[in-house]
């Protein structure tokens, strides 16, 4: 079975994002970038399926600028087998991404596409669902547990107030949630191996996909700056503050 895992290059989760001076978006110059944490979980899940003998090949794909190759190398160093970079310099909206992915799916013919449930930069939470729609495939979103048998996948989903289990007929789409697994660190042996793994470069046109933006960003704002906290030295001080400053006691 072949698995396809799309990964996105996003601002590192440990970096404090700043809005560009003109409000057109988030400042990315000189900012540490990383693989989207949810996508990392997706890669990990794919590797585990392969290690368990449920899959033979893991293909990772990223749609983004040339530097997204770094993100793909990270996935390869974790244990993916092959990478495809679909080069686009502009920001691509979820629908555009889904269209490119549909093209990739038609060429690669995976049985399962595992995606992060959302990217931490735009928080859209749409790509997986749109891809399922475009392909007409079954989908199991927000997975906290994935079991794969010959032509079926059983996905436990995190829903409000509990868990729901769905049974999907393959081929299918799975989007993963935070608690699915703890992704591994790329080890040196795997980093060395990643060097030799193939990374193909493509453009959206290769897949006949239109990635033109349909939305216009009017403005980007930082969250209204929360009053910085203070470290209290003791319980007594905390109680005092709650009483006299916050007035909640």
């Amino acid at each position: 079975m072949k698995l396809l895992v799309p990964v996105k290059r996003v601002i590192d989760a440990n970096v404090k994002a700043r809005v560009k001076a003109d409000g057109s978006g988030v400042e990315l110059a000189n900012v540490k970038m990383a693989i989207n944490p949810f996508d990392e979980i997706a890669v990990e899940e794919a590797i585990r399926l392969k290690e368990a003998g449920k899959a033979e090949e893991i293909v990772v794909v990223s749609i983004g600028p040339a530097q997204a190759a770094e993100t793909l190398r990270t996935a390869l160093a974790m244990g993916a087998d092959r990478a495809i970079l679909v080069k686009v310099d502009e920001l691509v909206e979820p629908l555009g991404v889904a269209k490119v992915l549909k093209g990739v799916v038609e060429v690669e013919r995976p049985r399962l596409v595992i995606l992060g449930k959302q990217a931490i930069d735009d928080d859209s939470n749409q790509t997986g669902q749109m891809l399922a729609g475009l392909l007409g495939w079954a989908q199991g979103t927000f997975a906290s547990k994935v079991e794969v048998a010959a032509d079926r996948a059983r996905v436990t989903r995190e829903v409000d107030g509990g868990l729901q289990t769905v049974d999907l007929k393959l081929p299918a789409i799975i989007t993963v949630d935070l608690r699915l697994n703890q992704p591994r660190y790329a080890s040196l042996p795997n980093i060395m191996k990643a060097k030799k793994k193939p990374l193909d470069e493509k453009v959206p046109a290769d897949f006949g996909a239109d990635v033109k933006a349909k939305l216009k960003v009017i403005k980007t704002e930082e969250p209204s700056s929360r009053k910085t906290g203070v470290k209290v030295g003791s319980v007594a001080e905390l109680v005092d503050k709650l009483k006299n400053e916050a007035g909640v006691l």
Partner: peptide, 14 residues
């Protein structure tokens, strides 16, 4: 290099 960056990422994350 690519490998050095991956090494750095891994150790820092650990």
């Amino acid at each position: 290099s690519e490998e050095q960056r991956l090494l750095k990422d891994s150790v820092e994350r650990l």
